[in-house]
Write a protein that binds this DNA or RNA. Structure first.
Lengths: 195, 195, 195, 195
DNA sequence: TATGAATGAGGATTCATTCAT
DNA sequence: GATGAATGAATCCTCATTCAT
């Protein structure tokens, strides 16, 4: 009852991360047991623990993986010299492009209910913080109306994530990008300073 | 010595429904096992199956219970002769009042990920349909801007539910009602026709 | 995949306790897995947890069960008006009688290495405390020599338990009771006051 | 990049033996998995099997290692021209010195329950046999009382090992050597011929 | 009606061992 | 010689559901 080196070094590792993301996204967190994750990745359960200390760590790393990439894009948007309105629009477009490129990963990172394995919101809050920077920029230049930045963040992410959720569950047709302009407009209307 | 008539007719039934809602909301779906639900309701496991065919049915009926009540309020708002802006505001106030009255139930019905026992849809869509009536009313009187009603519904529920979510998870302070005016304003800005 | 009420109320419970004791005694703690214990008791693994919260609790209760009975005997010996020498002899006889009546239980309670499930020494120490009472009695009447009571306890239990151990492992022939007089003599020689 | 000659010839081998002894003694047999043993020795799991055929062999050899050393000392005691009483005392002193020098090894070799990887016997009996020689010597010179040599061995090792056990578990304070005189006295009283 | 013991499948995790590199 | 990924069985424990009492 031994072995079988199957592939390249972190090939297995990546397959496990992907399998986790796909299963959670497709069938919900309950369905993403170690057994199923391993099966989907083409390894045995025991092998999972060669690469990850625990199920929680596996989930957490899957989350971090996705999220780090997304944040980099957002950071460059916030740092750019564009107007607040253009930044909001760029943020929405980047978000929906992400969704369309890999709806599973997006769902996993931003929409799934992660209370069970307690991944919490390392990203959620990092993204929230970053968005608040954008809000304050816009407020200081008079482009955005006066509003509690946390609420502004809630409005903005509510508008975006709800569209993503409805696309994911099939109520809205994919791709999400087709709604980017409309969502950007709604965000601008909701947050922009009135003339 | 088995048997022991415990209380009034569907008293037990109601306790089970409430216990389900509370457990799911407080500790997540994983924690809401039959054993724990029964314990919280002060009943034995076997008794659950006297009142509900299965765990799925129990969850489904808990969901319906909450949702029916919420919908009745909304129906009377839509049917009223008020302006579209006032109807939006009334809807937001009613929603947040519901949340504050019983955050557990609200979370259970609208925010929890119910894919495991496959509930969702029913209400979400019933409420969605109802809201679209409101949108079409406003659009036909020229009060609301031209926009796909499904997207309008997404915007509106995204703005409301995201605040509720942040209150539930502790990022925003309770009660949710304190944010009703701001959310109503944002919704009006996002959906109202421009002058 | 349901049920099968098998027997009387705590019939199963007792079978599980006995199975635990027997397996530990016969094959060592490693061999006494929940699976094997359940199999030996004629139930499924899950059923164990209807009666015991955990493996540790099962082990602990098995331990307590055996030990409580033994202690009662010892208490009456210590309380009796006999001479110290006679009390020592009675203690040895009672101990070996216990061993012979149920070597498995005796081994389980007093000889097995319980560090794994951390049952520790509730009894060990209670028995030790009790024996120290006996020692002090004998010292105060001048029957026993002056010696640290903890060491005296060590000597006494070392003499008794080692014989039990050797009988259990087959180096000495059963029954242990045949060695009671010799062990009592050795204990008296080791602990009695010199003339 | 595999391979990497790590150190001197049986350096690794010794480190593995020591790691086994330490882990078993410190944290019990359950904690001494191949993974942990290898880690503690600074080697990988696979390497263990380059030096030992199996875990059982590793344990067995660790046992033998300790025991051989101890026996040599005892042999010279038995062969010496001293009185029986002095030999008993020397034996006790040597035993406790061993314990104090390396309680882990002592525990591993003499107190741990080794039924799992089935070691025991070898030394226990070799030491037992040797002690019986001492007993018979003493009986033939009339220094020791008439008693079944196996029982005498039981008494003697019971007195010594129980003290070691209590020191190891913390009931008696270390070092064990401080109790050597008392234990030697008790052994002499229990086994010596009466005047 | 209500009880709770029993089931069997499944949950996450650890283990000793092998073998391609 | 050494590495560490992979295996498959075993670990303890929880779950939804049933049914004799």
């Amino acid at each position: 009852m031994p072995t079988r080196p199957r592939a390249s070094p972190d090939h297995t590792r990546n397959r496990l991360l992907r399998a986790t993301i796909n299963l959670v996204s497709r069938s919900g967190p309950r369905a993403a047991s170690i057994r199923r994750i391993a099966r989907e990745a083409g390894v045995t359960e025991g092998a999972v623990y060669r690469h990850f200390k625990s199920k929680d760590e596996l989930w957490r790393l899957a989350h971090t993986l996705i999220v780090d990439e997304m944040l980099t894009q957002k950071e460059s948007i916030v740092a750019s010299p564009a107007s607040a309105r253009d930044k909001l629009a760029a943020w929405v477009r980047a978000t929906f492009a992400n969704f369309d490129k890999n709806p599973e990963a997006f769902y996993y990172a931003l929409l799934a209910d992660h209370r069970a394995p307690a991944i919490l919101g390392p990203f959620y809050h990092r993204q929230g913080d970053l968005f608040q920077v954008l809000i304050r920029q816009g407020q200081s230049t008079g482009e955005l109306r006066t509003i509690d930045p946390t609420l502004a963040m809630s409005h903005f992410s509510g508008l975006m994530l709800n569209v993503a959720r409805l696309v994911h569950e099939g109520t809205l047709r994919a791709p999400a990008s087709q709604y980017a302009d409309e969502v950007a407009l709604a965000a601008w209307l909701a947050l922009g300073a009135r003339p």
